[in-house]
Amino acid sequence: MDKPAPGDGQVLVRINACAICASDLHFLRGGEKMVELSRELGGPYASLDLEKKVVLGHEFVGEIVEYGPNSRESIKVGARVVAVPVIMNSGGQSVIGFDNNYPGGFSEYAVLDEKFILEVPEGVDDDAAALVEPLAVGIEHARSGEPSVDDVAVVVGCGAIGLGVIAGLKLTGVTAIVAVDFSESRRRLALEMGATLAIDPRERSPYEAIPELDGRRTTIVYECVGVKGLLNEIINSVGYNTKIVMGGYSMAAEEIYIFTAQNKHLKVYFASGETPDDMSLALKSIADGTTDVRPWLAPRRIGLSGLKQALESSTESSAPIRTIVDPLLP
């Protein structure tokens, strides 16, 4: 592909590192459905042409090479930056890595929207900087449920989203956090991120009174799995006045019993992508050591030749939370 050129208010960066996200695999397996639903119901992928080239990768860090016309140039050329992976244009918005015109972080270069870039401090290395974006998503999901310090939060699913939610809840002062996952290794990671308790749902229900929390029950549930039927299971299991945040990524139609949700006075929130403020908080918490994302990382980086296998195994419970790709490596 040709080297991209930055337009008005845009910046060209050379990619240093890009993390693999499970949504990259979802796109490879269900891109047609993503485009179809966006065209039918509205969404950022409506203009995507799957007959043309697409370069994935939206969790990246890169060095500024040059600015396009009419830019503020508030960060010096050569500085490292991360960004919300979105380009604002006259047609709305384009998602970097899911757009024919804006290649993602698995390429050598990417064009970013100058409004959404943040300079990476010297003390944060490239691998950690590549995790700012997924951590920011978890922070956004955490605050979407409007949690209070008195909440008992149950986080279902301890992949990157769930771990990011746990980190986000800690940042907002929530101290009673119950992590739920089938995988023992991911439950351990959840405890490292700040969960109070980690539960295997095959052994006990996280929705009953919790002895370790003085018999308190959950007041807010974060669904971070994206499996059809799980929302209805949560609705049927929780107590009165519980809040439910849907953060798991799913394109399957969901059936729920509204009768049950109404009788329990439940509230359901739908989490979305991160904002610049979420990115800023994520970067700050990594830089000052409040949030340690190093346990998310695979032991070593890979090059493009290892990308296919790493993508295919990325949703397995034994896979690392994030594998870093260096697009300059073979």
Rank of each mutant, 00 (worst) to 15 (best):
P206E: 06
E140G: 09
L191F: 05
K3A: 11
P330V: 11
E212S: 10
I117Y: 00
I161D: 00
S148Y: 07
I177Q: 08
T218D: 11
L189R: 02
I161A: 05
L37A: 07
V95F: 10
I166Q: 01
G215E: 13
K284D: 03
F106C: 01
V325P: 00
I244G: 08
D24L: 03
I256H: 11
V61N: 03
T172D: 10
L112T: 01
I75F: 11
L25P: 04
A136Q: 04
L12T: 10
V61G: 04
V11Q: 04
A160L: 11
I20R: 02
A128K: 15
E312D: 13
A160H: 10
T275I: 05
V77E: 02
V132A: 11
G91N: 13
S71H: 03
V238I: 15
N89T: 04
G157R: 09
L230R: 13
R39S: 08
M193F: 15
A253H: 15
A110W: 02
K33M: 07
T291W: 07
S94T: 12
V54N: 12
G164I: 04
G164D: 00
C21R: 00
L118S: 00
G43K: 11
R80H: 00
Y222G: 03
P4F: 14
I302C: 07
L41W: 09
D214W: 14
K267Y: 04
N263A: 14
A282R: 01
P121Y: 00
G68W: 05
P134H: 07
P103E: 02
G239M: 08
M251G: 06
S107W: 08
G162F: 01
S107T: 05
S313V: 12
K228Q: 15
G247E: 04
N263T: 13
A5R: 14
E212I: 08
